[in-house]
Simulated scan of single mutants.
Amino acid sequence: MIKKLTSIFILALSSVIFIGCNSDNKNISNEPKSETREMKIVIPDGLPAIGAAELIKNNTEIDNYKLNFSIEKTTENLVTSVLKNEPDIAIVPSNIAATSFNKSGEYKIAATTGFGSFYLISTDGTKDIKDLKGKEIYNIGKGLTPDIVTKTLLEKMGYNSDKDFNFSYVNGVTELAPAVLSGKVKYAVVPEPALSQIEAKKKVTVILNLNEKWKELFKSNYGFPQATVIVKKDLITNHQMFLEDFLKNLKESVDFANSKGKDLGAICSDIGVSVKGDIIAKSIDKANLKYVPIKDSIKEYNDYFRILNEFSPKSIGGKVPSEEIYLQK
């Protein structure tokens, strides 16, 4: 069953996530512990790892809790691990959080570290969406979340996404970025940090910031959630002070990345992030890294899960998850 679920969501995960420091180790939890416990924390390579880089680099232990970080390079390993309920904490695409909850109910959503980082771009100077009618636009994975988000926005803007535009698809950003750079693709929906990688070598025009348009059309404070922090229910019940301290440090790490903290690129390199340091610095402004606790973003998730369910129920595990998925305080 796990193998089947993994195959269904493997492309969804890669399309969303793999697009892919100033303090000493901290002992800050007051929660009494008689012995050291290891916490397994899984984070995908790319923007989520960039946001968590300062935390990973400088925190090997919080009180008696040893932090065992794993930065996953492949989508299969991350999805399989989460669907097997192996990590204590993980950062995953929002639809995988819903899928995992619908499967086992083992994890709750605690926060978001990144919202939409997708951009509709052109390489021939085209600036207006209306000028793309009848043109071929490339995206990642037909029926997957980038496709659903793009078509939802176009429909809300008054277009017929199936008739007004000609969409073509590739399996992932590792195919899309080279196609844009080679000149084969003129119009595409591209995420950060791939967009900055392309901009370093080719002049592009951003036609539409998908997250900003989502905020406008859905009256959203933050946009659509992209990188979701999920935590095991056991932590909520039995290790609450540790969890609060961990999330506090994660927020500080995301803030550090957004401030382009000193040596961010070097820190990311040290912990194994695959994106080059110079590209990381360029991508931060459009990466939309933002730490928001779930209590402040439930509307964003409810809207997002509802829309994904309308397009493809299997993308979130068959149904909109109940409100029990949210860690609320």
Score class of each variant (00 low, 15 high):
residue 291 Y to E: 05
residue 327 L to N: 14
residue 197 Q to D: 05
residue 247 L to R: 09
residue 189 V to K: 03
residue 199 E to H: 07
residue 50 I to M: 13
residue 145 T to R: 02
residue 55 L to W: 12
residue 34 S to Q: 12
residue 51 G to E: 05
residue 75 T to H: 01
residue 102 N to Y: 04
residue 278 D to C: 07
residue 248 K to E: 08
residue 59 N to H: 15
residue 124 D to P: 09
residue 58 N to A: 12
residue 289 L to H: 12
residue 74 T to M: 01
residue 176 L to Q: 00
residue 132 L to Q: 06
residue 80 T to P: 02
residue 179 A to H: 00
residue 170 V to I: 04
residue 55 L to V: 10
residue 245 D to Y: 02
residue 169 Y to P: 01
residue 30 N to M: 12
residue 103 K to W: 03
residue 93 P to E: 04
residue 250 L to G: 06
residue 9 F to R: 02
residue 159 Y to E: 03
residue 45 D to Y: 02
residue 75 T to K: 01
residue 56 I to D: 04
residue 282 K to I: 07
residue 205 T to E: 14
residue 329 K to Y: 10
residue 98 A to W: 11
residue 175 E to I: 00
residue 226 Q to M: 09
residue 328 Q to W: 03
residue 100 S to A: 14
residue 317 G to T: 11
residue 137 I to M: 03
residue 123 T to G: 09
residue 58 N to R: 13
residue 224 F to T: 11
residue 49 A to V: 05
residue 308 L to K: 08
residue 79 V to M: 03
residue 30 N to I: 14
residue 175 E to Y: 04
residue 124 D to S: 11
residue 10 I to F: 02
residue 143 G to S: 02
residue 286 K to P: 03
residue 30 N to S: 13
residue 54 E to I: 09
residue 125 G to A: 08
residue 70 S to E: 14
residue 215 K to S: 09
residue 297 S to N: 08
residue 21 C to D: 10
residue 60 T to H: 15
residue 7 S to P: 00
residue 293 P to G: 12
residue 209 N to A: 10
residue 300 E to T: 07
residue 319 K to S: 14
residue 211 N to C: 07
residue 213 K to V: 13
residue 238 N to Y: 15
residue 163 K to H: 08
residue 215 K to E: 10
residue 148 I to E: 04
residue 274 S to Y: 06
residue 184 K to F: 01
residue 7 S to K: 11
residue 324 E to P: 06
residue 272 G to K: 11
residue 79 V to N: 02
residue 245 D to E: 13
residue 2 I to V: 11
residue 18 F to I: 05
residue 217 L to K: 14
residue 176 L to G: 00
residue 306 R to Q: 11
residue 257 A to M: 14
residue 207 I to W: 09
residue 209 N to E: 13
residue 197 Q to F: 12
residue 215 K to A: 08
residue 105 G to F: 04
residue 256 F to P: 05
residue 3 K to D: 11
residue 293 P to H: 14
residue 92 V to C: 08
residue 108 K to A: 08
residue 187 Y to H: 10
residue 187 Y to R: 02
residue 8 I to G: 00
residue 315 S to M: 09
residue 291 Y to S: 09
residue 84 K to P: 06
residue 147 D to M: 02
residue 107 Y to Q: 06
residue 79 V to G: 02
residue 25 N to Y: 12
residue 135 K to M: 05
residue 16 V to I: 09
residue 279 I to K: 14
residue 95 N to D: 06
residue 82 V to R: 08
residue 89 I to W: 02
residue 57 K to C: 04
residue 270 D to P: 00
residue 45 D to K: 06
residue 294 I to R: 13
residue 81 S to P: 05
residue 237 T to K: 15
residue 137 I to W: 05
residue 254 V to A: 11
residue 196 S to Y: 15
residue 249 N to P: 01
residue 295 K to Y: 09
residue 187 Y to W: 07
residue 86 E to K: 14
residue 282 K to H: 10
residue 110 A to W: 13
residue 233 K to S: 11
residue 106 E to H: 09
residue 306 R to P: 00
residue 183 G to K: 04
residue 76 E to L: 04
residue 41 I to S: 09
residue 138 Y to G: 00
residue 119 Y to A: 03
residue 103 K to N: 08
residue 256 F to Q: 08
residue 245 D to V: 03
residue 265 G to A: 15
residue 213 K to E: 15
residue 185 V to L: 01
residue 219 K to C: 02
residue 292 V to H: 07
